[in-house]
Amino acid sequence: MLDCYGVFIFDAIYTITDEEFTKIRDLIYSKVGINLTEIKKQLLVVRLQKILRRLQMSNFSEYYDYVIGDTSGEALSELVTLISTNYTYFYREEKHFDFFKNVLMPELQKKMQRVGESQIRVWCAGCSTGEEAYLLAILMREYFGPEYSKWDAGVLATDISTRVLEIAQSGIYGMESLKKLPKYISNAYFRTIDEDQVTVIDAVKNDVLFRRYNLMNENPPFKKKFHTIFCRNVMIYFDYETKNKLVDRFATLLVSGGYFFIGHSETIGKEHPDLEYIMPAVYRRR
């Protein structure tokens, strides 16, 4: 018979005590800002039980000690990956990408030509498996066309999860991931591997720099501000205080007039002192 917080694995039943859950929850919150509520206790057990079996651990206290003792950060990265939802696909929330190409890019081009600059800085924060970052790189190529080589355009894509970054860097995706993309884009920027998989062409891969980065870092290492920041469907994991601090930090990392995109299920309100509401889930630095 299963405990209400347990999972039966062959001859083992994994349960988590209130103390163990609190320790792991507090660790996750302090390191990456994700707020695990009490109702996520069973989910935590379900998602971590395979790790406990693999590591031949008998309880979650042993696992907690393992995570905090791992100086490489890989154990924490694996933990965060397992408790997060990394479902995404190309052209998700497509109005954002239409706005990026048809409104933001023409506006940015004019501004940069006036001041004689050519470097376009775009950041995908919480990039997951890379679909968003690659699509933004593709849209910049589409916008500039033959003039693209005259611009220093690229995308910085960051995530705390090593596993999703490895998937992103491979550039390999299932056919289902492309189902919303216009055919002319999928035909031009993807190469078929087999009947189930495609890969992003090398030219686009070279436009995106993937790096591991923790959004809870209060001293971002970036030397220059960004023209655009995408952080979509990431802040749903954060509590009110953490989300507000992060939004304030993003605002300081945007150039004046730079754009900030969040997920449609997220909100930061229309009265932020540094961010002007433009349309649902799109803001501009004042």
Rank of each mutant, 00 (worst) to 15 (best):
M279L: 04
V46A: 09
Y66R: 14
Y173G: 13
S77G: 07
L275C: 02
L156P: 04
L79C: 14
R284L: 12
F230H: 15
R249P: 12
A137K: 11
S177V: 08
E94R: 14
S177K: 07
D196F: 08
Y213Q: 08
Y259T: 01
R249C: 10
L156N: 05
E78F: 12
S170N: 07
E107L: 08
D98H: 01
L44N: 12
K270M: 15
N187W: 05
Y184S: 05
L55H: 09
Y29R: 03
V204I: 13
T267Q: 15
R53A: 05
R212T: 03
D274Q: 11
P146R: 06
Y14G: 04
N187G: 01
I236A: 01
G69V: 05
S58N: 02
E166F: 05
E117P: 10
I34H: 01
A75T: 13
H96K: 08
G6A: 09
K180P: 05
K223D: 11
T252E: 06
V45Y: 13
V255P: 11
Y283C: 01
S186I: 00
K243R: 14
Q49M: 10
D159E: 02
I24P: 02
R211V: 03
D239Q: 02
F226I: 15
A133H: 02
F190R: 00
E19N: 08
I167T: 15
V122L: 09
E176L: 12
S186V: 04
L135T: 02
D239V: 01
E19P: 06
E218W: 06
S61T: 11
R53S: 04
S170M: 09
I262M: 05
I201E: 06
R163Y: 09
F97W: 06
M235H: 06
C4L: 15
M279V: 02
H272L: 12
T88S: 14
V247N: 09
G145H: 09
G145W: 13
R54L: 12
S265W: 08
R47A: 03
A157H: 09
T71V: 13
L2A: 07
K223M: 11
G258Y: 04
K95A: 15
F238S: 04
D70Q: 00
K23R: 08
L215W: 01
D70K: 10
L135F: 13
L246H: 04
L246W: 05
I51L: 08
E218F: 14
A203Q: 14
I236T: 01
